[in-house]
């Protein structure tokens, strides 16, 4: 009996071995494993090559970035073949061009003010209008509105003047210059026989600009004249 059991066990083991051999032979799993391994290795190698090339490109970009400020110096000629560099310059020196713009606004403001002081209102009005439109960030904005409104009044353009004084009241309600502008607005209303509007304006000045004694004094004197 024991011999029989041993025989059966040996036979079973032999059968397992034979089955395993034939299974591997017919399913080709060893070969497939090998192929997958090779493909994986190839993929890793290709990834490495790709990363090395990407690094070369990145390194080249850094070299270009090092040379760019020299190439973009302003004294370069403006030839057509410089276009790509000039195009790039508009991006690289963005901050600088912004500063230049603000400096330019300062120059324009001085120029317009000179024309205003010399009584050349048409010219000063043109420059102030362009300044307000093109450089809304300038520190001279309130003064520009003010001088433009006054210049327009002097040139007889009452409508334009009222429009700009209105903008001033909206944008700079606390500026003392706005107070003087409002005084001018009241006078325009008076000249147009709009006494009620003028009265409202003078009352507003008296209420809003208490610290500007001369302004309040003038507003109250105009108010009395209007009430009469």
């Amino acid at each position: 009996m024991t011999r029989f059991v041993l025989f059966i066990l040996c036979l079973t083991l032999a059968l397992i071995e034979v089955r395993s051999y034939f299974h591997n032979y017919f399913s080709q799993s060893d070969r497939l494993r090998g192929e997958v391994g090779k493909l994986k290795e190839r993929l890793a190698r290709e990834t490495l090559r790709r990363d090395l090339m990407a690094h070369q490109l990145d390194d080249f970009r850094q070299v270009v970035a090092t040379l760019l400020p020299e190439a973009l110096k302003p004294q370069r000629s403006n030839r057509a073949d410089d276009y790509p560099l000039r195009n790039l310059a508009t991006i690289v020196f963005e901050q600088k061009s912004l500063n230049l713009g603000l400096e330019r606004a300062g120059v324009l403001f001085s120029k317009a003010k000179t024309h205003f002081q010399q009584g050349e209102y048409e010219r000063s009005n043109r420059i102030f209008s362009s300044l307000i439109q093109n450089y809304p960030d300038t520190v001279h904005l309130a003064e520009s509105y003010f001088l433009l409104a006054e210049g327009q009044f002097q040139a007889g353009d009452f409508e334009g003047s009222v429009r700009n004084l209105d903008a001033m009241i909206t944008l700079f309600p606390e500026s003392s210059l706005t107070g003087y502008g409002m005084l001018r607005l009241g006078k325009i209303f008076e000249s147009q026989d709009r006494f009620e509007d003028a009265e409202v304006v003078y009352r507003t000045i008296s209420k809003m600009f208490k610290d500007e004694s001369m302004l309040v004094q003038e507003a109250q004197s105009r108010l009395k004249a209007v009430e009469l």
């Binding site: 036979l11 397992i16 089955r19 299974h23 497939l32 494993r33 090998g34 997958v36 994986k40």
Partner: peptide, 29 residues
């Protein structure tokens, strides 16, 4: 007994038919 063992072999075979193959290249180069 033989029949039982053959059934065991068959069950083993079926169980391993869908197994994920372990790749030999996982060993480090």
């Amino acid at each position: 007994i033989v029949v039982g063992l053959l059934a065991l072999i068959l069950a083993f075979d079926v169980a391993h038919a869908g197994e994920i193959v372990a790749l030999p290249n996982e060993e480090p180069s």
